[in-house]
C-alpha cells in the first residue's frame, strides 16, 4: 500500500490527483500555482470548497443539489408541477436546464441501476419519487436516464415501480442529433430514429 504523503504540499498534490481528468503532472502544476501565485486565489478556492461541503446538500423534494431545504427549481412557482423529468445525476439535470426548453420539475435518482458495480435499486431515490407521484399532483413522469443498458434498466425499474399509479410514463426520444447529417450518423442512431419516427 502506498504511504501517505508526508508534507502539506504533497498532500495537496495527492488530493488533486483524485479529481477527474487531473494526473500527477497537472496536480503538481496546480499545487505550485496555488503556492507561488496570488495567495488570495488559494484562499478563495479553499473557502469555496468549504462552503460547498458544508452548505450544499440534496433538495428534500427532487434531490437536486441546493443550499436551501428546497432547490430553486422546486421552489419556482412558474414551473409546471404536473410534469417530472427523472434523471440519473444533478449533472444531467444541469444539461437539460441548459437546453432551456423544459419547464417542468425534476427528480434526481442519484445514479443508475448498475448491479455489477454493487449499485442496486435500494441506492436510488425511486421510493421518494413514488411518494411524490402518490401525492397526486404529477400527471407525467419523463424517464430521462441515459440510453445505455443500465440507463434503460433503471428506467424499467422506475416504470415498474410506478406501474400501479395513474401517472403517464414517457421516455426521452432517441435517434438523429439535430443539425447533423445521415452520413455522419452511426447505425444505432439510424435504427433508433427509424423506430421512433412520427407523423409529419
Amino acid at each position: 500500500m502506498a504511504s501517505e504523503p508526508a508534507g502539506a504540499v504533497e498532500r495537496l498534490a495527492a488530493a488533486l490527483t483524485r479529481l477527474p481528468g487531473i494526473g500527477p503532472k497537472s496536480a503538481e502544476r496546480i499545487t505550485h500555482f496555488l503556492l507561488t501565485g496570488d495567495r488570495d486565489v488559494a484562499a478563495m478556492l479553499a473557502a469555496a470548497l468549504k462552503d460547498v461541503i458544508e452548505k450544499v446538500h440534496p433538495c428534500r423534494e427532487c434531490f437536486n443539489l441546493t443550499e436551501g431545504a428546497v432547490c430553486r427549481i422546486c421552489s419556482d412557482a412558474r414551473r409546471d408541477g404536473s410534469t417530472v423529468c427523472v434523471v440519473e445525476t444533478p449533472r444531467d439535470l444541469a444539461m437539460l436546464e441548459r437546453a432551456a426548453t423544459y419547464r417542468g420539475l425534476y427528480h434526481v435518482l442519484g445514479g443508475r441501476l448498475a448491479p455489477l458495480d454493487n449499485f442496486g435499486p435500494e441506492k436510488l431515490t425511486a421510493d421518494a419519487l413514488l411518494r411524490r407521484v402518490q401525492r397526486g399532483e404529477i400527471r407525467e413522469v419523463i424517464l430521462a436516464t441515459n440510453p445505455t443498458l443500465e440507463g434503460d434498466g433503471t428506467a424499467l425499474y422506475v416504470s415498474n415501480l410506478l406501474a400501479n399509479t395513474q401517472v403517464r410514463i414517457t421516455r426521452l426520444a432517441r435517434g438523429l442529433p439535430s443539425g447533423s447529417t445521415l452520413e455522419l450518423a452511426n447505425a444505432q442512431m439510424l435504427t433508433d430514429a427509424l423506430d421512433g419516427r412520427r407523423a409529419f
Binding site: L116, L149, D152, G153, L156, Y157, N160, A187, Q188
Partner: peptide
C-alpha cells in the same frame, strides 16, 4: 462496431438482471 444488441434486456427487468448475471 456493433454486431448485435439485446433489446429484450431493456424491456424486462428479470431479463436485465439475468443478463447482468451472465456478464458477471
Amino acid at each position: 462496431q456493433v454486431e448485435e444488441r439485446f433489446t429484450n434486456l431493456r424491456t424486462d427487468l428479470p431479463a436485465f438482471y439475468a443478463g447482468c448475471y451472465v456478464a458477471e
